[in-house]
Nucleic acid binder design. Structure first.
Lengths: 225, 225
DNA sequence: CCTGAAACCTAACACTAGTTAGAAAATGGA
DNA sequence: TCCATTTTCTAACTAGTGTTAGGTTTCAGG
């Protein structure tokens, strides 16, 4: 199984991508091995050559969703000079998080929609991953506050939960044709750091309110009944 | 069916509550009529005396989730004097939204977790409800900006999406024993309006950072396999 | 106590689920 | 070309799904 992997790897990836798509659209129980197989141009039985069960598959999908984001944000933060301000760190983390979850959107959405439906044994490991990612954010924010950059009276723990909740929700309404990820990240950072009422505009945006109005339910492909 | 409803109504409610709970934990396809029946102290076949299909049931659950929030926020805003500032309106809307989604938490969570897995015909109506609720928020924010209360450079449409995303995400980590809903609402409003870096504290909070650290996965009841 | 409607249950139907064992095809080095 | 290994398919099994038809219980009102 792990000797000279070569041809198998591409099929494995195809199955994984297909699984993410189907899980995202139909949830854990709603996803059938036959539907995944169909999406991956395979027969249902053949999946078991690559993954030994449906649970192992969903486990792989879940982990990819979180790890991709964690890795991207970690790298982006590491690339920052040591003298970077807390504000800059937050901005960079937001941009990295956003671009990551949109790039691996199928996995992110699958993770979001399926977490809490999956058997406990599988979700436990994934929860640990998410927790440690949250701790990373917490540290950024605590540092910034200790430096005196944050003057908010709100709990930083709650703020972190708000930020990550809103960030992750983005994949639900984001549509490729509309606003660019960079623009969304900028607006988000501005919103998070200065709020609605504050904000002495550092750089004026070209056109603040226009363009495509995002819609709530971007994914119509639902089974008949 | 709608002649002299009396005894049937309480059973109907029991089934509905049970359905919300099960849908929230297992998703659309993962929810079985037998599991709902079990939770409601009933046999599976008996559900069909109250609801003619699983789809009708999920439709009812979805609508309750949205309508409860819409109604509560509408009332809270209507109770405000006409001279209320945009800032006050936002604060009130946040508090009302939060208390509503936590009170009918089972329905809210069911709605959140199941939307997108449900057949299109059912989700369509529900999406309309959510859209009109979003429009209500949009109006509050536009008004406030036109009055000159908001100085943010970020798109108000995006801001609204961020706010509602973060608000709805609250039910995922809220735990009854921890911080009070009012405290969370205050922090959230402060965060939304003044951001992290701003915020000339109007009223100092008693203890800003302490108490129960919320945990990510508050619902362990997952089927074995 | 009778009665008819309301509320519920039982048992089954047709169908689909995840999974598996074994046969068949594809692959690549000798 | 041959062969051994890898990869895929076929066909089936068991368990569990939503739903229904018809019988049974519950219960208010006469």
């Amino acid at each position: 199984m792990a000797k000279k992997l070569a041809k198998s790897a591409i099929s494995q990836k195809r199955v994984l991508d297909a699984a993410a798509k189907i899980f995202r659209d139909f949830g854990y129980a709603g996803t059938t091995m036959r539907a995944i197989a169909d999406e991956a141009d395979l027969k249902a039985g053949s999946i078991y050559y690559h993954y030994k069960s449906k649970d192992e598959l969903i486990g792989a999908v879940l982990d990819i969703g979180v790890n991709a984001v964690t890795q991207r944000v970690t790298e982006a933060l590491a690339a920052l000079p040591p003298e970077a301000t807390g504000r800059q760190r937050v901005e960079v983390a937001i941009a990295a998080h956003l671009s990551a979850i949109i790039e691996v959107g199928d996995y992110t959405l699958a993770t979001r929609r399926v977490a809490g439906q999956v058997p406990e044994a599988i979700s436990a490991r994934n929860t640990r991953l998410r927790d440690s990612y949250g701790a990373m954010w917490q540290q950024i924010m605590n540092d910034a506050q200790q430096r005196g950059e944050f003057k908010t009276t709100a709990s930083l723990t709650l703020s972190r939960l708000f930020i990550l909740g809103a960030l992750n929700w983005t994949v639900e309404w984001y549509k490729p044709g509309g606003r660019s990820v960079e623009q969304i990240a900028r607006d988000f950072a501005s919103f998070v750091l200065d709020g609605l009422s504050g904000g002495a505009a550092p750089l004026p945006v070209e056109f603040s309110e226009a363009a495509t109005e995002p819609h709530d339910n971007p994914r119509p492909r639902i089974r008949s009944a």
